[in-house]
Design a protein around this nucleic acid. Structure first.
Lengths: 335, 335
DNA sequence: ACAGATTTAGACAACGCTGACATTTGTGTT
DNA sequence: AACACAAATGTCAGCGTTGTCTAAATCTGT
């Protein structure tokens, strides 16, 4: 249990009989080291189990680290994780590592968490904005840290952003329902992600307006109350005197709820969800899908581009969505 | 676009008219600073948008950082990210952040990835071992970095570990099938996670042996070939002349495949999966479940304990599993 | 064989912070 | 008013690395 201390450049240098700068050159792959010395240094390093200290290196280099932060609201949503996976992959290609931080969906903690990350001198900041004001990041951005806003645009901050084709995707879904005769279409969503839900709602209304349906309030379930489960929202739609013949969900939580309620319903109700999910194919659930990992990859790429060219213009990228027909969205309205 | 440089302790000190040590005391919350000076320092810091440099701090403090690494094989498996969520939560309570690194399920890259993390002086290392030898971590462990092996024990390394009750959980599942008369029970699994699958297979065989069934090879599908999808494995069982009346799956991938094939089968085949999954309740799929987040939380806690008391004994913790009856596991064998 | 170019190696300081220690200022006691 | 003692503040060096600069060793071509 001897807790010896860690070997440093100097220790290796002493053992190899060279200067610490030479050891540094070997490990920084800076060249100009003869094959012989190089070999000796490596042997000594291995003997001492030497690992270069990245803290010191980053400090010396002016605070440039190899880590990029991804700030997330809530880790338990599989959506975020796929995004994270995409980010991680893209970063790994450039030898960067990802640190993951969560704000527990609390707007207050966002700035605290981000502050802590800045203290760690992350190279870039990717975040899913929760708070309704990201202006606190303006200074950081000016200092050259790329900030990329994921899934929703940042507020009061000029930053790159990657979002989905929310409005269009949802409009397409609803259009596919109106095309086969549906007019009474319910919309359920949980609005924790305000921006995306608002956009999707707009797409829903837009598509209905195209076929002359303007009064949609009665079919919209956007309860703020987290206690109102998607299941209840769906049920409340079915309980309406003039109940919908089709339902669309604004996100995967809604889909899961809808699936539970709608399965084995006597006169079947058509359904299309936003966000694909595991087994949706087996269940025959039509969804508006998109490449979640690509969302992450694109975000990472934007950050990396900005790192490479700090003067680059800010970009807003939209990830395309596509409607996948699996049956539940093709159910005809009862005659 | 002025890329000014970042403010340092010294800058703040100058503006506030105090020494940099005083500023340091304010930010390190080290006390012994009068309310007045404290206030002035904070004002100056805010004006300069000062953020303490954690790199320098960690370096000065002897390489003690606030980050804990979690090394994962493949981010896309929902299992891993629930574990990660648990870890993140537990760490956040102690003000630590999690860095996530993946090895792409490649044994070769494991050591490289871990090396890089050590260079970053992570405070502790949690990993899901992929390579079949973790002895390369021995030095690190001796240097005082807690190493916790998650989901499988480490090999050739004395480290804490948290695993599931694999054998018992699977044995219980199979016993519940034999109890209602099943004798011909198929086992499918993809062996990317060798250890867990071996254990679960052992549990399966054990339970069958208890009722006198010893020859099980024909019903085991453990193909190494990643091209053989779980769907095909299930199908091949059904195609047997003496086909099983029940099937158990060694992991969630297998369950997903089984669900696809088994749904709407004429004489229904009983099924129990290992690992719970979204909508399993709606689909009526019986599973061996456990608290995935707890797995992560426990791992993090082990690491933190070791950090608090470096001399603590290594522990092997088993997370309990429980069989959830939802219908698919209660299907009786055809008479 | 020799000047000049090039490659290899080392000395030194500094990145931003804090621990150890020194010094100043404030408070309470008699 | 003089003293002991605690609180507030400052000085300085060094954590492990690398950029800059300089010196020595080695390689060119004629």
């Amino acid at each position: 249990m001897t807790t010896q201390s860690r070997a440093t450049l100097a220790d290796v240098a002493r053992l190899a009989g060279v200067s610490s700068k030479t050891v540094s050159r070997v490990f920084a792959e800076a060249g100009n080291v003869s094959a012989d010395t190089r070999e000796q240094v490596l042997v000594a390093a291995k003997r001492l189990r030497f690992r270069p200290n990245n803290l010191a290196r980053s400090l010396r280099r002016g605070g440039v680290t190899n880590t990029v932060a991804f700030v997330i609201g809530d880790l338990t949503n599989p959506f975020y994780f796929h995004v994270a996976a995409g980010i991680e992959r893209e970063l790994a290609l450039r030898g960067l590592t990802m640190v993951l931080a969560t704000t527990d969906d609390s707007p207050d903690s966002e700035e605290r968490v981000v502050d802590a990350l800045i203290s760690q001198r992350v190279r870039a900041l990717l975040l899913i904005p929760i708070a309704d004001d990201q202006s606190y990041l303006e200074g950081e951005r000016q200092l050259g840290t790329p900030v990329v806003s994921v899934d929703r645009p940042a507020r009061n901050l000029l930053a790159d952003s990657v979002v989905l084709q929310n409005r269009l995707g949802m409009a397409e879904a609803v259009r596919s329902l109106t095309a086969i005769g549906h007019r009474k279409i319910g919309f359920i969503s949980n609005p924790s992600a305000m921006y995306t839900q608002r956009e999707r709602l707009a797409g829903y209304r837009e598509a209905l307006r195209e076929v002359g349906v303007v009064e949609t309030a009665q079919w919209e379930r956007l309860d703020d109350d987290p206690d109102i489960s998607p299941e209840l929202a769906v049920q409340s739609l079915l309980d309406l005197p003039d109940s919908p013949t089709a339902i669309v969900a604004g996100n995967n939580r809604g889909s899961a709820g809808a699936v539970r309620v709608l399965r084995n319903l006597k006169p079947p109700v058509a359904f299309i969800g936003f966000d694909d999910f595991e087994l949706a194919d087996a269940l025959g659930i039509s969804v508006v899908a998109y490449d979640t990992m690509e969302l992450g990859r694109t975000a990472a790429r934007l950050a990396l581009d900005h790192l490479a060219d700090p003067g680059a213009f800010t970009q807003q990228i939209e990830i395309p969505t596509r409607l996948i027909h699996r049956g539940s969205g093709e159910i005809l309205p009862p005659r």
